[in-house]
């Protein structure tokens, strides 16, 4: 990760700290309205495809987060690239829920060369709640709702109460704390 030192009025800070500060401020600000779903794509379809890619069911309680993620992954997309995003979602939506990784990859290949990287980015953002704008520089979208905490349901997002005191001494049991 790049970590160039930057001299500022306030003394020595790392480049990453500067970038991070700006990035978080950017996420907190009002999101652009130009990336609403296109006419032939809606949030339900987006959630269905997101569930397919991530292997985790996403009900309507994810509408808000789904909108935010769509806005973030397409923030800098040109109209042409936005069209490819829409095309990818629409094509994947034909797959049955629970489709295998290979079925998903085959469909992505049939959409076009940038469909796979787009799907990978979307899946990462859902799983991690963060987006990598440039290599090694991340912005946080929503840490607590990152799907990794559902995938790893033996734990919880840090700074979240994990359970009654001492729960950690017991073996993890599916469905228990």
């Amino acid at each position: 990760m790049s970590n160039h030192k930057v001299e500022s009025k306030s003394g020595l800070v790392t480049r990453r700290q500067v970038v991070t500060g700006l990035a978080v401020a950017g996420v907190a600000s009002t999101l652009p309205s130009s990336r609403l779903f296109a006419a032939d794509l809606n949030v339900d379809k987006f959630l269905k495809v997101s569930a397919l890619l991530t292997g985790i069911a996403l009900d309507k309680s994810y509408i808000q987060l789904g909108n935010t993620i769509w806005e973030q992954v397409t923030r800098d997309a040109s109209p042409s690239v936005l069209g490819q995003w829409t095309d990818m979602i629409n094509r994947l939506a034909y797959l049955p829920s629970g489709a295998s990784s290979d079925d998903i990859k085959n469909t992505l290949r049939s959409v076009g060369p940038i469909a796979t990287p787009m799907a990978m980015q979307l899946t990462k953002v859902w799983y991690t709640g963060r987006i990598e704008r440039t290599p090694g520089v991340f912005e946080v979208i929503n840490y607590d709702e990152a799907l990794v905490w559902q995938a790893c349901d033996f734990t919880k997002p840090p700074v979240t109460c994990g359970g009654p005191f001492g729960y950690w001494a017991k073996p993890y049991l599916k469905g228990a704390v």
Binding site: L52, T54, G55, I56, S100, T128, V148, A151, C152
Partner: peptide
């Protein structure tokens, strides 16, 4: 740590339930 495992699994071209299982197993 769990986030990094997810990134690695996606980089290995996994999706869907296979991805979920991989993230669980590696993190755990």
């Amino acid at each position: 740590g769990p986030l990094n495992e997810a990134d690695d699994a996606v980089d290995d071209n996994l999706f869907g339930t296979e991805l979920r299982a991989r993230v669980f197993n590696k993190t755990a």
